[in-house]
Structure formats: C-alpha cells, structure tokens
Design a protein around this nucleic acid. Structure first.
Length: 235
DNA sequence: CACTTCTTGCGTCATAATTG
DNA sequence: CAATTATGACGCAAGAAGTG
C-alpha cells in the first residue's frame, strides 16, 4: 500500500473505532476487540485506551444506568477520556497497598516483552535504574520509585538572553520561536518519559495479574484439598 | 512478491495536575 | 495563581506479519 493508501486506511480504521466506541454506550469492550491483538492498536491510538481509575469508576457507575442511556456525545466521551491517571500515583498506591511490594524494572526487561514471560518477573529482588527512578523486583509486584526530576535539558539547548534585552520585533519573534522550540523539546522528552512510564505501568499490572492468578490457583487447589478432607465420602 | 493489515513509536497539541 | 510538568488524544511513518 502506498503511504497515502495507508493513511487512508488508518483514518478509516480510526473512524470505525470511534464509531464502535460511540456505540459502546456501556463502556465495555467488544469481545472481538478485547480478545484480539488489535486492542493494542486502540490503546495506542487512544480511542479506547486503558481506562484510568477514574474512568473505571465512571464506567462502572454508568454501566448500571447505561442501558437506558442514549449515545454518549463526543464531548462527554472526551471529558471522560481526559481524566488523568498519573501512573506515578497509581504505582505509588499499588506499592503502598501491598507491603513488601516488588518493584518493576525498565528497558532491560522491555526486550523480554516480546514473549510476555510474566513468571520471569517474579524473581528475587533486583534493582534497575531508569532516567527518572529506580525499580526493584522482589517477586510479587513491581514497584516504581520516582526520584526527584532532574530537568536535564538535552544537549545543545542554548539559553537565550533575558527578554529585557530584546527590543526589535525581530528579536521578539526570535525569542518567541526560541521559547516555542524549547517548549516543544521539553515536551518531546516528557512524552518519551511518559510513554516509558506507561509501559512500565502496564507491565506492573501484568505481573500483578500473573501473581494473582497463581494465588488464585493455589487457593482453589487448597479448597479442593480441604473439601476432600472434610467432606465424608458416602460410598 | 506486491499489497494489505497490524503494531509500535514518535512529535505535537490541549489540558489536567503539580509545584513554587 | 502563574509556571511547569505529565499525560490523553491524534496523526503520521516505518517495519512486521498476514494474504492472495
């Protein structure tokens, strides 16, 4: 497909997804989507990204009354989607919820990501450094500790003269341009960092799921054992 | 093998959240 | 409360995977 064709495809696809979501008044994900890998696409494009805690609550709330509700209009949907999750907060909450919570790692394990070998994450303590924080893993749950941000500007950033020394319109325009470029560059970095955190957050959730599944399995087995012991056999 | 579809990551914008 | 930072949304591109 040519690039143009590809763009057309993506746009069509996005429109379709948006329409799908519009029709999903109860906020649930269609099985066909939820079960397919393409759910990733929707996460990426944001139209059906991971619900934030607030969203989950909202969805749960609306779920009950939603059946009779009519279409969620664009602004409402937008409003819901725009509620911020703050991975930092959530991760902190997760780690404080569960005492002795393990901590997640960074890039290194990202390579492992191709095969979601979750079990491999439940390994004795290890510590990883990232550009903004430190992770340790102790087997159960990953935890992420953010260290004080070091607003390290990328190399090559030149700080301009103070605005007070600017006079001509041309200088002002240059100053504006410089400020904009600086802002874009900072935001670029912030976006990268944000995506990295998001990936780790998702990994954290995945490993939590893995741990809980194991726990669940054990409990079920235990229950069966106890049943065998305490229920008299009626031959 | 050409074409299509999916996945992933990036840059930017708007705006919520945080900080001083 | 203004300034700064964090993050959802969006559009785009490149590469991988699937298909006829």
């Amino acid at each position: 497909m040519s690039k143009c064709g590809r763009k057309k495809y993506i746009k069509t696809n996005l429109r379709q997804m948006t329409m799908e979501i519009d029709s999903q008044q109860d906020g649930s994900i269609p099985d066909s989507v939820a079960e397919s890998e393409s759910a990733h696409m929707q996460m990426q494009t944001g139209q059906n990204s991971i619900p934030t805690l607030a969203q989950v609550a909202t969805i749960a709330e609306t779920d009950e009354s939603a059946e009779s509700e009519s279409v969620i209009d664009f602004h409402k949907r937008r409003e819901i989607l725009s509620r911020r999750p703050s991975y930092r907060k959530i991760l902190n909450e997760l780690s404080s919820d569960v005492p002795g919570v393990p901590k997640i790692e960074e890039e290194k394990s990202e390579e492992e990501g191709t095969s979601p070998n979750i079990a491999a994450m439940a390994v004795p303590t290890s510590i990883y450094q990232t550009s903004t924080g430190q992770y340790t893993t102790t087997g159960d749950m990953p935890t992420y500790q953010i260290r004080a941000p070091t607003t390290a500007l990328p190399q090559g950033v030149v700080m301009a003269a103070s605005p007070g020394s600017l006079h001509s319109p041309q200088q002002l325009a240059e100053e504006a341009t410089r400020k904009r470029e600086l802002r874009l560059m900072k935001n670029r970095e912030a976006a990268k960092e944000c995506r990295r955190r998001k990936k780790e957050y998702v990994k954290c959730l995945e490993s939590r799921v893995a741990v809980l599944e194991v726990q669940n399995k054990k409990l079920i087995e235990e229950l069966e054992t106890l049943k065998d012991i305490y229920s008299p056999k009626t031959d």
